[in-house]
Design a protein around this nucleic acid. Sequence first.
RNA 1: GGCGGCGUGGCCGAGUGGUUUAGGCAAGGGCCUGCAAAGCCUUGUACAGCGGUUCGAUUCCGCUCGCCGCCUCCA
Length: 458
Amino acid sequence: MVHLHNSATGQIEELKPIRDGVVTMYVCGPTVYDVPHIGHGRFVLVFDILRRYLEHQGYKVVHVSNITDIDDKILTRAVRENLQPSEIASKYEAVWWETLEMLNVLRPTSVPHATQYIDEMLGLIQELVRREMAYVSVDGVYFDIAKVSDYGLLAHQTLDSLRAGARIELNENKRSPLDFVLWKITHNERWTWNSPYGRGRPGWHTECVVMAQDLLGESFDIHGGGADLAFPHHENERAQAISLGHNFASIWVHNGFIVTGGEKMSKSLENYVTLPELVGGSDPRSYRLLVLQAHYRSPLEVNGALILDAARALMRIDSAIERYRRFANQVSYTPQPNNAMIEAFSKHMDNDLDTPSATAGIFAAISRMNGLFDVGEVDQGLAIGCGIVELVSVLGLAGITDDLTIPSEVTELFQKRELARLKKDFQTSDELRKELLLRGWVVEDAKSGGILKPLREV
RNA sequence: GGCGGCGUGGCCGAGUGGUUUAGGCAAGGGCCUGCAAAGCCUUGUACAGCGGUUCGAUUCCGCUCGCCGCCUCCA
């Protein structure tokens, strides 16, 4: 049974899908006005891992993640780059998907765009106004948070303490500083839509409510995003949905931040690193492993040295899997995974996605498998190795170069070296080994003969 | 000011009232090897400080110090 921490209750709760066998999950996606940074990478990886695990457990996962393609930041950027806002959005959305592909992140099952939902948003706003949950002011339509009795649920604060701490500029047009805009009336701006309230554009908090409910229904299982989205974004989404009498999300899942030098990574500081920079410089799986080795709700330190550490750890996984395959090719049966290890893995993952323990289990299994192969216990080693392959794949860590082809000149050089080595002509064999290394191939001499492996740069 | 979290061995990072105190990387030693690589074995005796509860606390409680996040756009 999968259990997850619910930000709404502060408790770890059992995931009880509304529909048997199907998990409906909405994850707040990016506003596409710039290249994604490693913070985006974390939330994407965390929810990708959750999804892969749920699918491994036999659930069908309906995974919706939006693209916010209308926002003040996009407009600002459009001016700066001298492009249309829609051009900015599609440009950075393209970068977004390219980067996620490098990270081996599964595409959501649906990717709604805010601009495709303007009519639906207006419909929701009108309904909120009709129910007197929202009011029309001179510069827009505002949601009246005082009408929601448990406003502050996700912030874990009372209305009074939220009010006391509010740092929002006073706005004469709002009844409470915490009221948020549903429809922003803007004249003389190029990217606006008609509405009963005047030309303008929707507020950010409305789009996710509309899109989530359109694609997942009035109630769904998981709503996720970064920890900073809990308040006010998710609070405000929830306020709108429950104002319509809907249950909305059952479990709210929020991931922790990326920190560098102990501080939250942000654009205003110099600790800002873009995702393409990070994953482009080395094996993109390194970042995924780093994310896996910390709990998703903890802050996570990321820097170049740690990425290198993870890359080395990845080599351990890869060479273990290569070793498993060599042994698997020598037996006449198809190995089956060791059950105990799969069960232990699931037990950890079921416990609020305890990926640190789950990955530790994989590394422990690698040691065991190697030990078994070392002493000739091939069958037991294969069962464990088979489990390793399965679990590594569940976590999205499977190597990209699994089915590698060896160029014929490399094979030739390798065979020459084997011969030289058999003749104990170590000088020649060492030269050939160097030659192969220059071509990107490593030779390891085992008892049974040389093994050719692609060179992995760290 | 309000709310929440954290301080673990060289680094990252889990976890737990006491049996073997994860895991990764790095470091030392050993085995294997023509050399290497990979692998295996092994060492490090960590839990901010001060009190309290307890037979026993890193783990529970209190206080102190330090750090961080949210309360505004933000993954």
